[in-house]
Design a protein around this nucleic acid. Structure first.
Lengths: 195, 195
DNA sequence: CTAGAAACTGAATGACCATTCAGGTTAAGA
DNA sequence: TCTTAACCTGAATGGTCATTCAGTTTCTAG
C-alpha cells in the first residue's frame, strides 16, 4: 500500500505540510489536504489512519531529511567550534528555505507533546544531540570549558536559533539576514563556552 | 459587568489556565472550564465573547503580572550584567512556580500567531524588550561589545531560557535545578557578549 | 416590600468535519 | 477479452462542542 503508490503518499504529505503550516493542525481540514493533494477525502485514509497520523508521519519524514542534511554538512568541519558555526548557519538556512516545515516544527512540535502524550519525538532529540555531541567533543579537546553542561548548553543554543526562526516565520519582512543572525548567535555561544 | 463580579472573572481565567494547560486550547472544552470555575456554561459568555477571547484575556492578565514582577526584580540590580543574571533566574523561577502559565505561554504563544492572525501580543514584545534595554544599557556603559545587535541578542537569550523551560514543562523529572540552569545560561550569554 | 434590571443557568441548537463505506475504476495476469 | 483484487471516490453519517436563549434567581433602588 505505502509501497504501491509512494508518490501519492508523498503528495499527501506535501499537501499536509502546506495546509498545516497555513492553518495550524486543528484548523486544517482533511478535505482541504485532500484537495491540495488532488485526491479524494477517503483516499487520505488509505494512506493514514487518522488526521494525527498525518502530522506524525510528516514529522518523521521531514525530520529525517533535516537530520541527514545537517549531519552531512557538519561532517565537513573538523573543529568543534567551526561545527557550531556551521550548525547555526545550516539551521537558519533551512528555516529560510523551508518556511512551511519551519512553521510546523515551530508550532506543532510544541503542540504535539500535549496532542499525543505518548508520541516521543525521537528525531528531534537526535537533532538536539548533534549539538550535545559537538560540545562533548569540544570539551574533550580542551576547547570548551569544563564546567559547561552539554545538556543545558545544547538546549540553550538550539533555543536561541529557534527563537530567531520564530521571529522570521512570523514576521513578513525579515529584519536581519540569515548570515548576520547566524554569525551573531554562534559568536555569543562560542565565546560563551570556549575555554 | 467585568466590574460587578471581578471575582468570578478571575475564577474563570484561573479555571481556563488550568484546563488549557492540561489539554491545550483546542481540546479544552468550554464546559470543562465552566465546571472547573463552578459556573454554568452560559456564564462564561457573560464574561467573554468567544473561547478565543478567554485565551487572549488570559494572556493579557498573566503577562501583565509576569512583566511587572520582572521589572520589579530587575530594578534592584544596577549592573547590566547582573541584571541579565537576575533575569534568567527570575524567568526560570517563574516557570518552576507556575507550570500552568508556563505551559500556556510555551505552547499557545506559538499557536496564537496562527490562531489569531491579527492579535499582536504586545506584552510579549515588551518582555523581550526588557532584555533588549539591558543590552543597550550595557553597550552604552562599555560593558558589552559594540558589534552585538540587541535585536538578535535579546531573542537568543530569551530563546535559550525558553527552550530550557520547555524541557521542564514537558519532562516529569527535572534533570537540572533552576539555579544551575540559570547560572549556566547567563554565563554563556554574558561571556558571549561582554567586551 | 416590590418592581425591574442584572446575572446566571443549562438544555437545546446547529455548524462543523473526521471518518466510513457502498459503489466505481484501474491494472495485471490468464 | 475477462476476472478480480487493489485502489479510489465523495456523499452520507455521527459525534462533538461552541454558542444561544427562554426561563429562573439574585440584586438594587425606590
Amino acid at each position: 500500500m505505502r509501497q504501491k503508490n509512494q508518490e501519492k503518499y508523498k503528495r499527501i504529505i506535501d499537501a499536509a505540510t502546506k495546509v498545516f503550516a497555513e492553518k495550524g493542525f486543528y484548523k486544517a481540514k482533511v478535505s482541504e489536504i485532500a484537495q491540495q493533494a488532488g485526491v479524494a477525502d477517503g483516499t487520505i485514509y488509505i494512506y493514514f489512519d487518522h488526521k494525527d497520523d498525518i502530522l506524525i508521519s510528516l514529522f518523521e519524514e521531514k525530520m529525517k531529511e533535516v537530520l541527514n542534511n545537517m549531519k552531512e554538512q557538519i561532517r565537513s568541519e573538523t573543529d568543534p567550534l567551526k561545527k557550531i558555526e556551521k550548525f547555526a548557519l545550516v539551521h537558519l538556512k533551512l528555516i529560510r528555505d523551508n518556511k512551511d516545515i519551519a512553521e510546523i516544527i515551530q508550532v506543532e512540535l510544541r503542540q504535539s507533546s500535549k496532542f499525543m502524550k505518548n508520541y516521543h519525538n525521537t528525531k528531534f532529540f537526535e537533532y538536539l544531540d548533534l549539538i550535545g555531541d559537538i560540545i562533548e567533543e569540544g570539551k574533550e579537546r580542551g576547547l570548551i570549558r569544563d564546567d559547561i553542561l552539554p545538556g543545558i548548553a545544547k538546549r540553550a543554543f538550539f533555543g536561541a536559533l529557534d527563537e530567531m526562526s520564530r521571529f522570521w516565520v512570523l514576521s513578513k519582512k525579515p529584519k536581519y539576514d540569515i548570515e548576520t543572525a547566524s554569525e551573531q548567535i554562534s559568536s555569543f555561544f562560542i565565546n560563551g563556552i570556549r575555554r
